[in-house]
Design a binder for these strands. Structure first.
Lengths: 170, 170
DNA sequence: ATTTGTGCAAAGCCTTTGCATGGGT
DNA sequence: ACCCATGCAAAGGCTTTGCACAAAT
């Protein structure tokens, strides 16, 4: 029961095909095309598993004039496709759209530190059980959920204590 | 245990002062002013307890030229103050900011029907317990949370079945 | 050859803000 | 009299879109 909460970093799951392969399949079944931009973006996105928004992604991509430059419009369009294809998940935080890897990673929820703005992940089977119990009581057919716990992470608790001590000395 | 989920409509709690009184207090302690617009808006907002966004609120307020007209800028500014004052809560849904009554109402979470776009409320003590348990494992100091269960409400399930049956007949 | 994708710039949507005027205290 | 609040219009931040050209099938 208490082991149902997993604060450890999430591991990639064993999945039969890579994100690249899965996206190819997605494109082919809909008569869409494989382009250099799409290939480049999928590699860029899956090269690290942080949370990011469109702007952050654009910042770490080649700038205009450099090789492999991709316009922002295409980045936005492609991020949507990745979500459609089940490669990424997206949600809203502080007004912007945040993306995270979905394909190949276990379902999880988030803790959000309102001081350092960092997102932490956790998994809890009990939460999913509770969700389904609530939904069934309400006659709902569940398709998903979004749980974000807001607060202050341990690092920030420490830092804010230090800061407060300093202030108290003045 | 099973009684910890409350799908029934939320009731107003007994609170010593009205939203109006509480807002007056809030304004006075900060040297802010009571204006006709603020009074009018607080009445408009607390006259029904639905979820709404700025646009929906503006739509049901008097139009430009009519009595008690309030500019959109003031509506936006005032909604923020209501949140600061603890009268309203706000959260993001599908990109827009949704407001709901907070002062005088018990804490709760939401089910969101992605078909009819309606929000339903539920309360669950177990969810709060789980939240605190997760947070403490992660060294977090909790300040709040946001849980939204997405899916299809019972009405929409019925409707979509009917629709499907019709389609099948064609 | 056909049809989708891309880049560019413009527009959209929701919300905030600068500024001059109006109104509480 | 002071200074906060309002209305207006303009600007902001993020995202989408129309269009002409480029590229994939």
């Amino acid at each position: 029961m208490s082991s149902s909460i997993t604060p450890e970093p999430l591991q990639r799951l064993n999945v039969s095909s890579s994100p690249q392969e899965r996206f190819e399949e997605y494109l082919q079944t809909r008569g869409l095309r494989q382009t250099s931009q799409r290939k480049f973006l999928i590699d860029a996105v899956f090269s690290e598993h942080e949370h990011f928004d469109a702007d952050e992604l654009i910042d770490r991509l080649p700038a205009k004039g450099e090789d492999n430059y991709v316009s922002s419009a295409t980045v936005y369009r492609t991020l949507r496709e990745f979500v459609d294809a089940g490669l990424l998940k997206s949600f809203q935080l502080d007004g912007r759209t945040v993306y995270e890897l979905d394909y190949g990673y276990p379902a999880h929820d988030h803790l959000y530190c309102t001081r350092c703005k960092e997102l932490f992940e956790f998994t809890s089977e009990a939460l999913v059980g509770l969700r389904d119990q609530v939904a069934s009581k309400m006659g709902f057919r569940v398709s998903g959920h979004r749980m974000i716990i807001q607060g202050m992470c341990s690092d920030c608790i420490t830092k804010s204590r230090r800061k407060k001590r300093k202030q108290d000395l003045v």
